[in-house]
């Protein structure tokens, strides 16, 4: 469960996130929508403890990320935007490092976890290849594998299907869907069909503020007959 209360982030004079509040429960897949620069990534960076909020708080399973950052980081699997990873390591070495940091210190403990995510994300063919030589799609899947490795109760995914081809997108969506029942998931995306495919709830954020927080059906009911992209454009057009 994630509870975000009045989150604010200032970059100098610019207020990137302005009083964002919402709650995500176990079993929810929250679609985080908004134009570029609306504050989606910044909000996710604060929830995962990478950025310190200027004001407000974010709680993950009841733990405040500012007060107990390491506890929260243990609970969360996070895929940052563009899936950063150490370029000189091979996929296997990188996942081995993540496993060690995640507390799987012996080979007996770490091997099954690593094999599991390599299978899940179809990384078998590239496991001995260094990350800098991978295509965008493979890099993205390495990031996804890294986030899933410790089977976290909470997943925060910043544009998880970015750079994937249609088949891989479908694959990632079905993985998320399968896991959704026993996890709390937030994912940001630009792709509205993705929201319709996997999300149970939608938050639209514009200029650092939440403009919609509703179920997909609720959102459709409010704008009878309109398609999701029309609703999106209507709500966020003040941004451009």
């Amino acid at each position: 469960m994630i509870e975000v209360k009045g989150l604010v982030k200032d970059y100098g004079a610019l207020r990137a996130v302005n009083g964002v509040s919402f709650t995500v429960r176990r079993g929810d897949v929250l679609g985080f929508l908004g134009p570029n620069g609306a504050g989606k990534s910044t909000t996710m960076k604060m929830i995962t403890g990478f950025l310190r909020p200027t004001a407000g708080s974010a709680l993950v399973n009841g733990h405040d990320v500012t007060a107990e950052p390491v506890v929260v980081k243990r609970l969360v699997g996070y895929l940052p935007e563009n899936a950063p990873a150490y370029p000189e390591m091979t996929v296997g070495e990188f996942l081995g490092f993540i496993a060690e940091i995640r507390g799987f210190r012996t080979v007996e403990l770490s091997r099954p976890r690593i094999e599991h995510v390599i299978d899940l994300c179809h990384l078998g063919p590239v496991r001995r290849q260094s990350i800098e030589t991978l295509s965008k799609g493979y890099k993205q899947r390495v990031g996804f594998a890294q986030a899933l490795l410790h089977d976290p109760p909470v997943l925060v995914l910043d544009e998880p299907t970015d750079g994937l081809d249609p088949n891989q997108k479908h694959e990632v969506r079905s993985i998320i869907k399968q896991m959704a029942a026993e996890k709390t998931v937030i994912l940001s995306t630009h792709i509205l069909e993705e929201v319709e495919a996997i999300c149970t709830r939608v938050i639209i954020i514009s200029r650092g503020q939440v403009v919609v927080d509703d179920t997909l059906d609720g959102l459709r009911a409010r704008h009878a007959g309109a398609r999701l992209d029309e609703i999106f454009r209507q709500l966020t057009q003040t941004d451009t």
């Binding site: 995962t48 950052p69 390491v70 980081k73 950063p84 990873a85 507390g103």
Partner: peptide, 9 residues
């Protein structure tokens, strides 16, 4: 960003 969202101080 990866490093500081792993459980390390």
């Amino acid at each position: 960003e990866l490093l500081f969202t792993l459980p390390v101080t």
